[in-house]
Design a protein around this nucleic acid. Structure first.
Lengths: 216, 216
DNA sequence: AATCAATTCAATAATTATATTGAATAGTTG
DNA sequence: CAACTATTCAATATAATTATTGAATTGATT
């Protein structure tokens, strides 16, 4: 076989990967699965699609070997096949968030709507935690915390925040994080806490971003 | 605007990027442009397509902001818009080369055909150069060397190798590199040198891989 | 073994992608 | 400014993608 033919075939194989994440819903699915494994049913609710359509998209991802399946009772559980998949999606977001004025605008508008006055990044968190004592909370649903979290974080899912508010210190700054920059849970948590006179800050990055930073 | 709508729009925007590289020919184009800027005409020859088709693909890449254009005389020169694009394609290759048995097989078969007995990687090169004196040659066409090369390398384009063979040492091991693992130029160079009793080795990685390793 | 629940499959219709040919354009060069 | 050249555009036919509905399947559970 000639070298040209080989190259052509390799790029065709490689494009299976990029084709799999070329659809917005499938990109969202992979990004969600980076948090933890989910059932088809859960995923379909998260991405607002019929179960059948979600299943089809998941099968495309599976054929491209970006995700695996396993069974748990009646449920089929989809999960990311390996860390490099998360890295790939991270590279897409990294490029997109910087390169596309449209995306910047969408996120900025969203922050205005949600009344987000201040957000910090992972780097800010590290720098700041050297100067003052911070209280880091992970406001994602429990299962995602259990699948992995930033070491010093305490799990307080958003829907438990009201009744567990006595667990939070009034004298320290509370930093809340969730799934990442596109997720609202930490924003809602911070607004709730601020209304009750806590010192609270949202961190844009989540566990997945932390993990990528602390890999290699 | 609700958070869900924002997320949906952001993923739609992000999928412009992944859609742009979801086609094998476009993936190959971006990978080529990582070496240096090229004209439409040069690119169409490299990827074995009509000029019109190549132009259409390039316009898709441009709309997705992965490449820029400039003019040089009668030619339109396409180039990568920023380093993060190269990083993205590298993440795709990184995943594909490991994950796809099919790709591994294609590359292995190609090596057998080309009689490639031994290949080293960038890491091997660094380790080995501490123990013995190596003579590193860049066998890509001159323009690509000029656009960027590994610091210690000497430019000897493949088609000049025969007449410049006296520039090469008999007592050192010669390491040849080109565009990367899918490129044949270094393989051909090594086979040519070995037939003339030089000690020669192919390095799979190229300048782009070196640059990514020596970035951040 | 029958029932049940979660997921997948099949069929459909509308939309979008692809490669090609040949014409049009825009900018450069003599 | 006329001729030229590289690139883009337009039109076309074929193929692939997408979301949906409703039926089929596959294990688990009773």
């Amino acid at each position: 076989m000639a070298a040209n033919q080989m190259r052509e075939k390799v790029y065709t194989e490689l494009s299976r990967i990029t084709h799999a994440i070329s659809n917005p819903k499938r990109l969202e699915l992979v990004d969600l699965l980076a948090q933890r494994p989910f059932s088809v049913d859960e995923l379909s609710r998260e991405i607002s699609m019929t179960i059948a359509s979600t299943s089809q998209h998941l099968q495309v991802l599976k054929r491209a070997k970006l995700v695996n399946t396993s069974r748990k009772g009646n449920f089929i559980i989809y999960s990311i096949s390996e860390d490099k998949v998360v890295k790939l999606v991270s590279a897409v977001k990294d490029l997109g968030f910087r390169k596309y004025a449209e995306i910047e605008r969408l996120i900025a508008d969203f922050k205005t709507d949600k009344n987000v006055l201040e957000s910090i990044t992972l780097n800010d968190l590290l720098a700041r935690s050297k100067k003052e004592k911070l209280f880091l909370i992970d406001v994602r649903p429990e299962g995602e915390f259990e699948a992995g979290h930033i070491p010093t974080a305490v799990s307080i899912p958003l829907d438990q925040l009201k009744k567990r508010i006595n667990e939070l210190p009034k004298n320290k700054t509370i930093v809340a994080y969730c799934r990442g920059p596109l997720c609202v849970m930490a924003v809602d948590a911070v607004n709730f806490l601020k209304a009750r006179k806590f010192k609270a800050l949202r961190m844009e990055d989540g566990f997945v971003e932390w993990k990528l930073l602390n890999a290699d």
